[in-house]
Computed example of a mutant assay.
Amino acid sequence: MSPEPRRVTIHQADNLGVARALPDGAFTLIYLAPPFNTGRSRSHRPQAPAPSGAAEPVHAGFRGREYARVRGALREYDDRFDDYWSFLEPRLTEAWRLLAADGTLYVHLDYREAHYAKVLLDAVFGRDRFLNELIWAYDYGAKTRRRWPTKHDTILVYVKDPERYWFDSDAVDREPYMAPGLVTPDKAARGKLPTDVWWHTIVPTTGRERTGYPTQKPEGILRRIVQASSRPGDHVLDLFAGSGTTGAVASALGRHATLVDDNPEAIRVMRERIPHAHLGTLVMPRRADAAGIV
């Protein structure tokens, strides 16, 4: 028996303003799939060596000195680094504030930015908060013959508290064994738990879940995330909601969802896809300490 669909709130606004209006620790699961920044250029400039004997202290922690050191090093390496990270950093900072003590943050990127984000998120949040690097692999679309075709995205997973985070592997859908003849018939019939590499098609060009929105994520990917890292009745947040896959999946699984996007077309698609969703009425505060989930 499927759970009763839960409340979905859609905000049409800049996601940073909405995030600042939401209360601390309100969400067990936060999923972020920011723009992939495909147009960046890269250039290398050698770093000047530190003065002799002037060793910098290195320690992880939220916005600690290690973060400043790492960001400075990346700025030296890539003179367009700040164009992307200055946009993303405050949104990640707010997402971390909004995450519950037992919560999990998923940051979905492609190969152009994942390595930058991993190093910086370790420095911002602490390497001990890093849980997984998930690889979503697919095989669809054009393939170049001039290099290995790029057919995967990276999802970085961080937990607010390494001792308290919620993770329910039993709730996750199972998948077929790649070599079913090597396991017992019972195991082959039951399937195996997914690893950190997820083979899953993109949204089919025809099918029930297709909305036509260009960056739509498949429900199967979000279903696995929601099943593993939240419980029925929990609150889920997506600050780059796009076609609303996170909300559609979360609500169907009995979770509440808050979705944010400033694109009118995204709002139209979400409202059509999730008819029971309602538009939020947050009053944007001047400080990042206010309001409730409405």
Rank of each mutant, 00 (worst) to 15 (best):
A60S: 08
D78V: 03
T38F: 11
R127D: 06
R42I: 10
S43L: 05
A100Q: 01
L121Q: 10
V119G: 03
A50H: 03
V107R: 02
A33D: 14
E66N: 12
R97G: 01
N37D: 05
A117F: 08
Y116I: 06
Q47S: 13
D79S: 06
W85T: 00
W96H: 08
L105D: 04
W85H: 01
L105T: 03
R75L: 12
E89C: 03
V107H: 04
W96C: 01
P57W: 02
Y111D: 15
A68I: 04
A33T: 00
F87V: 03
L121A: 11
G39F: 10
A48E: 15
V58Q: 05
F130L: 15
R75G: 08
A60Y: 11
R112K: 14
R45K: 04
G103A: 07
F130S: 05
G103S: 08
T93E: 15
L32H: 08
R40E: 15
L88R: 04
S52P: 00
E94T: 09
P34Y: 12
A123R: 05
Y77V: 06
A117P: 01
T104R: 13
P34V: 07
S41K: 14
D82F: 13
A117Q: 09
E89N: 03
A123Y: 04
E56S: 11
Y111G: 09
R40W: 15
E66S: 13
L32C: 07
F125R: 01
Y84N: 07
G72N: 06
P51R: 09
S41C: 12
T28E: 14
D128Q: 09
D128H: 08
Y67V: 01
P90C: 12
Y31P: 00
P34N: 10
L32D: 05
L131V: 02
G61A: 12
Y111N: 15
S52F: 06
A117Y: 10
E133A: 13
V119Y: 04
L88Q: 11
A101W: 06
R40F: 14
S86Q: 07
L29Q: 07
N37P: 00
R112G: 11
V124D: 12
L134V: 00
R42T: 11
R127T: 08
F36L: 13
L134Y: 01
G72T: 04
H108A: 07
V70M: 11
D102L: 04
R63M: 12
F27Y: 14
A123D: 08
P57Q: 01
G126N: 07
P90Y: 12
